[in-house]
Amino acid sequence: MSFDVISDNLLYFLIGAYPHGPLGGAALTLLLSVLTASISAILGLGFGVALALTRGAAHTALLLFLGFFRAIPVIMLIFWVYFLLPILFNVDVPGVFTVVCALSLIGGAYLAHSVFAGISSLPAGQWQAGRALGLKTAQIMKSIILPQALPVMLPSFINQWVALIKDTSLAYVIGVAELSFVATQVSNRVMVHPTEIFLFVGLLYYVICASLEAIANRVARRYDKHMRLDGK
């Protein structure tokens, strides 16, 4: 095995054609991951709170809406956004927007159920105590429920974010030059050493995912310590 192909193309693996072309490679994978993680967290929190506060037909409709995005494959949603929107609305949909949109919707749908489960795990007495203090529903959710439920939700958030990082590799099907795409380009160009190339790509994905998990766990420990100190 020879890893000269890695050193010869290292910059291309990391940033793609940038600065002489669009950003790509591992840098674009990181950018897609940060954007989708942030948007999916916002959507998941919003939909999860809505699930906890709605009842009856509204709750059922929201479950069906979220269930739709949980049920369809990521690659199918990417194709729908990329090919169907231009036909329906006569607009040009950039590839990066397509991937961020698709992954954020699916990630948000999964996280919404994690948020709902975290909120539902708290005893009803927390709500009753807030109402006894004269707080409104939004105030109870913000000041009492969510601070206690967030540590319960965090493992699910981390798992979903790691899954989103790996799912960014599906962007190659619409020509977005993320890490997997540039790796395939290099492999096709040199026509040798595919094992070395994709071992290196796997290592990069591992480093990105492990770093995210380490950072999230560190934040969780600090948050937990802060909550314990506030509770004293």
Rank of each mutant, 00 (worst) to 15 (best):
T137H: 09
S120W: 00
A138H: 11
G118A: 13
G125W: 07
L122K: 01
S114G: 05
S120A: 14
A129E: 03
Q128E: 15
A138P: 02
I119Q: 01
K136M: 07
V115R: 01
H113S: 08
T137Y: 05
K142A: 15
Q126N: 04
Q126A: 03
K136P: 00
R131I: 08
I140D: 02
G134E: 08
T137N: 09
G118P: 08
G125C: 06
H113Y: 14
M141K: 01
H113D: 09
F116T: 00
S121Y: 02
S120K: 13
A124L: 08
G118I: 11
S114M: 12
T137K: 14
W127Q: 06
F116R: 02
L122D: 00
S120G: 04
S121W: 03
A129V: 10
V115I: 14
A124W: 02
Q128I: 09
G134I: 11
H113P: 00
L122H: 01
P123Q: 06
A138N: 09
L135C: 07
H113E: 15
Q126C: 04
A132P: 05
A132T: 13
G130N: 06
S114K: 06
G130I: 10
R131T: 13
A129R: 07
Q128D: 15
L135G: 05
A132C: 11
S143E: 10
L122P: 00
Q139F: 07
W127D: 03
P123A: 08
A117N: 04
S121F: 02
G130Y: 05
L133I: 07
I140P: 00
L133R: 12
G125R: 06
R131L: 13
Q128M: 12
A117Y: 00
S114P: 01
A138Y: 10
L133Y: 12
Q139A: 15
A138K: 09
L133A: 09
W127T: 09
V115L: 02
M141Q: 02
M141T: 11
Q128N: 10
T137A: 14
V115M: 14
G130V: 10
R131H: 13
S120H: 04
S121Q: 08
Q126F: 12
L122E: 01
G118W: 10
